[in-house]
Write a protein that binds this DNA or RNA. Structure first.
Length: 256
DNA sequence: ATGGTCGGCAACCGA
């Protein structure tokens, strides 16, 4: 089972990149974030044509998440329980017996802002969802743009960037509270190298060429599933496309 | 060197 996560920064603007890469990579599951499309305008035709199923939750202008899969998704849930009007940042589904949690974690703006508190609290709400709906002994894969670079080797300048909302002790603690529920960083099981990034800021000149990036996009799995992982890697192909997102996909393969 | 990113969506906001 091949699973990937990709912050597409507008699904409609990135449609060709996403469709071509999805077909070429032969993915069983692709979770995308920042679709920036309302449900009524979701580009279903493009995915019908290539034989992929889809579930999605979007909103106008911002956020939005979707999961594409070869097999039909079951037990689909969008958003946190009892908060149907929340931002479109969370969708979960069961695919081939694996629970897939796709998140677009709030970025947090600035450390002193309310938005940062919202971000930190968002992780704790997610822990509540894990506790209520899953068991750490089950096969669960949590993927998405988590907007946290966990380690010093996950950012291009850990000294200068320390205290940024995506590389902040409180963000690290919040992520740890969530992973302590029962998740393993599948990428780090397979690769210990520094400088392995999934995001390069558009606003920095030549950030990709200079590899001034961040590892913000993650594939985490419960121990039962992580033990079956055979590979995990970042695919820079889509970041080098003609009209790239500022993120690039991360891919994991599982023997399930 | 007086410029320097995207996308959504229609003036700015978010990243």
């Amino acid at each position: 089972m091949k699973v990937a996560s990709f912050n597409v920064n507008s699904l409609r603007a990135r449609l060709d990149v996403v469709v071509d890469w999805l077909v070429e990579s032969k993915l069983d599951v692709l979770a995308v974030q920042e679709t920036k499309v309302q449900d009524a305008d979701f580009p279903t035709d493009a995915f019908d044509k290539i034989g992929y199923k889809y579930v999605f939750r979007g909103q106008k202008s911002y956020n939005g998440v979707a999961i594409f899969s070869k097999s039909r998704a079951k037990n689909v849930r969008a958003g946190f329980d009892r908060e149907p009007r929340d931002e479109a940042r969370l969708i979960t589904a069961e695919i081939n017996g694996v629970a897939v949690v796709n998140t677009y974690v709030p970025q947090g703006y600035m450390p002193e802002s309310e938005k940062f508190d919202y971000k930190l609290n968002w992780f704790d709400r997610l822990v509540g969802l894990f506790e209520k709906n899953f068991n750490p002994a089950d096969c669960v894969v949590w993927v998405g743009d988590l907007n946290v670079a966990p380690l010093a080797i996950d950012v291009y300048d850990p000294v200068t960037l320390l205290g940024h909302v995506c590389y902040h002790p409180r963000a690290h603690e919040a992520l740890k509270r969530a992973t302590d529920w029962g998740f393993v960083d599948v990428f780090r099981m397979h690769c210990k190298d520094a400088g392995q990034y999934t995001y390069w800021d558009y606003r920095m000149s030549n950030s990709l060429r200079r590899n001034l990036g961040w590892r913000l996009d993650h594939i985490l799995a419960t121990r039962a599933l992580a033990e079956k992982s055979t590979a995990c890697y970042i695919d820079k192909g889509p970041r080098e496309a003609e009209r790239p997102s500022d993120h690039t996909p991360i891919v994991a393969e599982f023997a399930v």
